[in-house]
Structure formats: structure tokens, C-alpha cells
């Protein structure tokens, strides 16, 4: 192909490149640098060694992040499929309806769940009217998982929908034609062909779930420490940047590993833009 370009066009990428080096790459190095230095600036392994005590927190974060991610997958999969089967106009409306809550400040949405779940909240006062409860719902592990599921569900629905809406209907018909019943068509054709969307959705829900700090503080009542809470405390309350950096570094590496694992299934299209 003849695609002669003046060097001027190629060069316009340089401001972006410069910006990225300064404000994306350099900060990563600073995370590493602070991880391996003490508050006096001298090299030390102290921060890394101190991480051992946070192992339970890491395990808890990953475990709850995974749970929320899987719940999102199971909730989103049927919905995305239903949406992809409706008319083009309905699809547009429903996708807009999925996206709309994301434009609402997430702190307020999370807080709103507090008022729904608390002992004197909406659900318990309704239950009280029929003589039940009150049940403790707030400050439980369930509430934290609910908060994660709620906040990040759209990140699962959208990539799933975008893959499913591009599924070739005749491929599904071919599977039926060859004798596949509904379950077989789902397992043998629809799910395998949705894999890129599933992988993308899993990352997009897992990453923010595992690193959240606000949801666990509000819905877990502070007794429910996640790794995000620990990082936040080091930077905003304890002012131990070095330890905070070390924890962040480990979190980053953990996520990179899980993403590399998932990327084997995902297409290389550079993620899904929401």
C-alpha cells in the first residue's frame, strides 16, 4: 500500500508521548522508588517486609472482588443477551439506561444504599410493618459485596452486550439447525463466542472491586478492611507514603498477573471504551 506521509503528521504524537512519560510512566517509577526507600530516602526492604502482616487483607480483598465479579457476570449475562435480542431502538434505550446510573456520583449512590440497608432503613421499616426484623444488613460482608456488584455491574453489562450484539444470528440458527437445543446452543456457541466480552467484563469489574476503599468503609462499617482502605490510610491519615507505595506496588503486580491471565481469552482491541 502506498501511504506516504509527511513526517509532520507522525510528529504530532510527541506531546502525548511526552505527557505519558512524565505523568504515566514516571509515577510508576516513583511507586517503585518509594517502595524501596524509607522516610529518610535511604534504600530499604523494610516496607516490603512489612507487607506480610497485610496478607489476610490482600486475601480478603481478592476473595470479595472475585465474588462480586462472578455475581456481576451471572446477573449481566442474561440481561446483555436479552438486550442484544431487542430491536435497534430498544437496544439504544436500554444501553443508555444501563449507563445512566454511572453518571451519578458513586459516593452518593453508595451512601444511598446505606440508608436502604440500615437498621432503621427502607427495607427494615417495610419488614417491620409486617412484623419482621429488624435484620442487620449494613456493616456485613453481604453489604460490601452488594455495593461492589451494584457499582460495577454496568462495567460487566456493556462489554458483554457489545460482543453479543455483534453475534452473527445465522451462526446461532446454524447451531439450532444442527440439532442443538437451547442449553446446547448457549454452552457450545453463545458462551464461547462471548468470551472476549466476558474477559473484558471480568477485568473491568474485578480491578475496581479489588481496589475499592469507599464501599468497604461505608457498607462494611470500617470493620471490614480491604486493601484499598489500607492504602488510603497510609496516604491520607498515617502519612507513611513508603509503606503505601509498597502495598500499591503489590496490588498493581497482582492485577497485572490476573489481567495477563485473562488477556489470553480477550481480543487485543485495547479494552472496551465505556
Amino acid at each position: 500500500m502506498i501511504k506516504k506521509t509527511s513526517p509532520g503528521y507522525k510528529a504530532v504524537v510527541s506531546p502525548y508521548l511526552l505527557w505519558s512519560i512524565l505523568f504515566v510512566i514516571a509515577p510508576m517509577f516513583f511507586v517503585a522508588y518509594y517502595s524501596f526507600t524509607g522516610s529518610d530516602g535511604a534504600w530499604t526492604l523494610e516496607n516490603i517486609l512489612a507487607l506480610g502482616k497485610y496478607t489476610p487483607t490482600f486475601v480478603r480483598s481478592i476473595w470479595h472482588g472475585l465474588l462480586a465479579t462472578l455475581i456481576c457476570l451471572f446477573l449481566a449475562f442474561p440481561l446483555s443477551y436479552f438486550i442484544s435480542k431487542t430491536s435497534a431502538n430498544t437496544q439504544r434505550t436500554m444501553v443508555a439506561l444501563v449507563m445512566l446510573p454511572m453518571w451519578m456520583n458513586f459516593l452518593i449512590r453508595t451512601y444511598s444504599w446505606m440508608t436502604i440497608l440500615q437498621d432503621t432503613g427502607l427495607i427494615n421499616s417495610m419488614l417491620a410493618k409486617v412484623g419482621l426484623g429488624p435484620f442487620q444488613m449494613l456493616n456485613t460482608r453481604g453489604a460490601v459485596i452488594l455495593g461492589m456488584t451494584y457499582n460495577f455491574l454496568p462495567y460487566m453489562i456493556l462489554p458483554l452486550y457489545s460482543v453479543m450484539s455483534k453475534l452473527d444470528q445465522s451462526v446461532i440458527e446454524a447451531a439450532q439447525d444442527l440439532g442443538g437445543n437451547r442449553y446446547q446452543v448457549l454452552r457450545r456457541v453463545i458462551i464461547p463466542l462471548s468470551m472476549p466480552g466476558i474477559a473484558s467484563g471480568l477485568t473491568m469489574v474485578f480491578v475496581p472491586s479489588v481496589s475499592t476503599f469507599y464501599i468497604s468503609q461505608k457498607l462494611g462499617g470500617g470493620s471490614f478492611d480491604l486493601i484499598g482502605d489500607v492504602i488510603e490510610r497510609q496516604f491520607q491519615q498515617a502519612y507513611n507514603y513508603n509503606l503505601g507505595a509498597a502495598i500499591s506496588l503489590v496490588l498493581m503486580v497482582l492485577i497485572l498477573i490476573s489481567m495477563a491471565f485473562l488477556n489470553k481469552y480477550s481480543d487485543s482491541g485495547g479494552g472496551v471504551v465505556v
Partner: peptide
């Protein structure tokens, strides 16, 4: 007991 050859073959890409 019928099978179809589709316009664009509709082979399973996976």
C-alpha cells in the same frame, strides 16, 4: 429432520 446451508455459511468461528 432438515438441515440448512446458510447464505454466508455460518460456520462456528471458534
Amino acid at each position: 429432520k432438515v438441515n440448512t446451508i446458510f447464505q454466508r455459511y455460518a460456520l462456528f468461528p471458534h
